[in-house]
Design a protein around this nucleic acid. Structure first.
Length: 210
DNA sequence: GCGACAG
DNA sequence: ATCTTGTCGC
């Protein structure tokens, strides 16, 4: 009678929560942008890092790290259930508020419109941008060359990609604004908030091993 | 059956 | 994600 299809239950949760995502800017000006990333050691032991960057000069104005244990396994399409809690926890350690958040993973450019960035954005109720290095599945349609191209899924524009990264709405921001902010915050291929968070998490991880 | 599959 | 050196180029 009852079928215990756990992955399907999680998928249902994602479909359901995706309806709450707001794809419009819920803020006026952006002065500080935060970024969060996680570095792994032995599968489940990890270091989560959060940094806040000043958008004017792209300098780091605050940063925090925490050690975490991730209990949920990595399953493509369900990264939010694995990493959202750790990301939220480390962001709460930051001293000051920030205007926009960048997360290492897809936002609505996701099979069920609810990737890690949307998990975090919705739970924290803040403007969030999702940034990933690759499409989660290879069958979105977009013209492939070097410049930024719009990605469509189910007849809807869900994000933009170039050869380096994919950008999509996490929550409370428009795709256009998300793309603009990512460009403003970039010195290299990854925007500074995420690049700095990644460097920090990796360095703390190395220290921890010694 | 085979390959694909965010971090 | 992580395991890993040198190397090409500005």
């Amino acid at each position: 009678m009852c079928s215990y299809n756990f992955p399907q239950k999680l998928a249902d949760i994602q479909y359901s929560l995706s309806k709450n995502i707001i794809e419009q800017d819920s803020f006026k000006n952006v002065h500080t942008v935060a970024g969060a990333d996680i570095s792994f050691e032995k599968d489940n032991c990890a270091v989560a890092a959060a940094v806040a960057v000043d958008l004017d000069d792209l300098t780091v104005i605050d940063s925090k790290t925490i050690e975490v244990k991730l209990l949920f396994p990595y399953i493509s399409g369900f990264l939010g259930f694995r990493e959202a809690d750790a990301v939220i926890s480390v962001l709460r350690e930051l001293n000051n508020e920030f205007d926009v958040l960048m997360v290492n993973g897809h936002g609505i450019m996701h099979p069920r419109g609810f990737g890690l960035a949307s998990h975090v954005g919705l739970l924290m109720d803040i403007p969030t941008i999702g940034i990933a290095k690759r499409l989660i599945k290879g069958n979105y349609k977009y013209k492939g060359d070097n410049s930024l191209k719009t990605v469509e899924f189910m007849n809807k524009s869900v994000g933009a990609c170039d050869r380096q990264k994919c950008i999509s709405v996490g929550h409370k921001i428009s795709l256009k604004t998300a793309v603009d902010i990512v460009h403003e915050a970039s010195l290299f291929k990854m925007p500074e908030p995420l690049r700095q968070a990644h460097i920090l998490a990796t360095n703390i991880m190395k220290d921890k091993i010694k």
